[in-house]
Design a protein around this nucleic acid. Structure first.
Lengths: 159, 159
DNA sequence: GGAATTGTTTTGAGTTACTCAAAACAAAAT
DNA sequence: ATTTTGTTTTGAGTAACTCAAAACAATTCC
């Protein structure tokens, strides 16, 4: 075998099986399966809220020669295809996550910048309806909570 | 009188009275009253959700020679002082608004980018409490609704 | 009212996080 | 195997800020 196995056939070891799953996801989104795309998706699996730059760093570790622009391109196509979600918290470069399709929100630490997922406040779509939509056809509600994470609280409480 | 009236004394005509009010606000925020600051605050009064660049355009109309960096500086000091609020919707440069101190949210048109204020969804602080704060000390909840404004709806519905 | 003090603005440079386009290349369809 | 189509590389360019030093102006103090 002289070419890498990108085709998602029966896996022979864990990484191959993983590649198969990733490849299937990419293919069923209507996109061609390529090595940079697999690498980005794999990197994003380990880093649930990553910047393009962080992913670039991770990708080039297992696929040297990949360009930053390729990572941007991959992320753009994934985002358009609904395979990943892009979030842009104030003051931060864009973050990407694989968790899509549900309406979850985010909590960002103002101290260290760490981001976690949080489920919608009230059980059912609560924040999805503004008091007065002003004639808008509302399609999405994005909620970002800001606060101090447990660790940053502990650190600021020191003598 | 050879120097402009920045001191906020009894106004002689509407613009002066306005300057007095603006100056008072700036002064009580603990900031020095300067011509660029008055100009930015006045421009922001007419443009409830403006970018630094838009404000720069407006400011230089009545105070030529003001630099863009001065506008950034003014906005940074106002934001720190709590005199204005900075919002950063995804894909847009930062917007500034004078409405502060209440917990209102925003609705952004995905077509034309227009931004309006909206009050909190449910009567009482609804979105302020995530289902699970994950140990965070939550200080703020920011909600952005995305949708099509009435005008953009009408335009997309054309034959 | 004038000098000292402190904070602000100008001027000029630099950075981050992207975006765009053309040519080389690789995956999928035939 | 070849063609087609979509992707990645390479290289350039941009928007929106941020930083620092020197000039300047608003308060404070006498």
């Amino acid at each position: 075998m002289t070419t890498p196995n990108l085709s998602g056939g029966a896996g022979l070891h864990p990484a191959a099986a993983d590649a198969g799953l990733l490849a299937g996801g990419i293919r069923s989104a209507g996109l061609k399966v390529t090595a940079p795309r697999l690498a980005v998706l794999r990197a994003l699996t380990d880093r649930p809220h990553a910047t393009a730059d962080a992913l670039f760093g991770a990708v080039r570790a297992d696929l040297p020669g990949t360009s930053l622009q390729a990572v941007y391109g991959v992320l753009a196509s994934f985002t358009t295809a609904g395979l990943v979600r892009k979030i842009e918290p104030a003051g931060s470069p864009a973050l990407f996550e694989r968790r899509v399709g549900d309406n979850h929100h985010h909590i960002v630490c103002t101290g260290c910048g760490v981001v976690h997922d949080v489920d919608c406040a009230v059980g059912h779509a609560p924040c999805l309806t503004p008091a007065d939509a002003l004639g808008f056809d509302v399609r999405a509600a994005e909620v970002i909570y800001w606060g101090l994470c447990a660790q940053c609280q502990a650190e600021t409480a020191l003598p």
